[in-house]
C-alpha cells in the first residue's frame, strides 16, 4: 500500500516538474511549485518524517509561494521565450544529471538500516536518549540538545539570510532618497 501511494506521489511529482518546465506563465509556475511542495510534504509523511513534512508544507508551499508571488508583482508574470536554442545549458544539465544518476548506483539501497549514515552517530543518540530519559521527540532532542551548536549555526544562517534580503530590497530606497536630495540640491544650485 505504501509503495502504491509513493508511486502515485512520485508520478505526480514528475508530471508537475514537466508542467513547470513547459509553463510560460510564471504565475502558473509559482502555483505549480506550491503543489510540488505539498506533494513532497506528502512523500515525507509517507516516510514518517513528520517534522520535515511540516517544514516543507509551511516553508515550501506557504512562505516561498507568497514571496515568489510578491516578486512576480514586481517583475511581471510572463516569461519571454529564449532568443536562441539553449544547446550548451541543455548539454551541461544532461551531463550533470547523468553524473548524479551514475553516482546513485554506488549508494546503499534506500531505507537500508546498515547504510553508513545510520551507523555513525545515530545509534548513539538513540541509545543515549533512552538512557538519559530525554524528551520523547528524538528529533527535537538531537536538534536542540545533542546538536545544539549546529542549530545555533542554522539560526545564525536564517538571521544572515534575512538581513541580506532586507539590505538588498530596502537598500535601494535609501539610495533613491539620497539621489532625490542630490537632485534637489542640484535644482537649488541651478
Amino acid at each position: 500500500m505504501i509503495t502504491f501511494i509513493q508511486g502515485v506521489l512520485l508520478t505526480l511529482l514528475a508530471a508537475i516538474t514537466i508542467a513547470i518546465v513547459r509553463q510560460r506563465n510564471l504565475f502558473g509556475v509559482v502555483i505549480l511549485a506550491g503543489i510540488y511542495s505539498f506533494l513532497i510534504a506528502s512523500v515525507m509523511m509517507v516516510l514518517d518524517a513528520v517534522d520535515v513534512a511540516m517544514t516543507e508544507a509551511s516553508v515550501g508551499a506557504g512562505i516561498s509561494t507568497v514571496v515568489l508571488l510578491a516578486a512576480l508583482h514586481l517583475t511581471g508574470s510572463r516569461e519571454y521565450p529564449p532568443a536562441h536554442a539553449a544547446l550548451l545549458p541543455l548539454f551541461v544539465s544532461a551531463v550533470t544529471a547523468g553524473a548524479l544518476i551514475w553516482g546513485t548506483a554506488e549508494l546503499p539501497k534506500f531505507g537500508v538500516s546498515h547504510a553508513p549514515i545510520h551507523q555513525n552517530t545515530a545509534p548513539k543518540y538513540i541509545e543515549d536518549a533512552a538512557q538519559h530519559k530525554m524528551p520523547p521527540n528524538m528529533v527535537t532532542g538531537v536538534l536542540a540538545d545533542y546538536r545544539g551548536y549546529d542549530t545555533l549555526g542554522e539560526t545564525t544562517v536564517i538571521f544572515t539570510g534575512g538581513i541580506g534580503v532586507m539590505l538588498i530590497m530596502r537598500g535601494r530606497r535609501r539610495k533613491s532618497k539620497g539621489s532625490d536630495a542630490k537632485s534637489k540640491s542640484r535644482e537649488r544650485s541651478a
Partner: peptide, 24 residues
Amino acid sequence: VESGVITTVASTMLAIFYAFADRG
C-alpha cells in the same frame, strides 16, 4: 533555545515579506 529559534524565524520570514511587499 527553541524560543530563540521561533523569534528569529518568525521575524525573518515576516521581515522578508515586508521587504518584498514594500517594493510593490
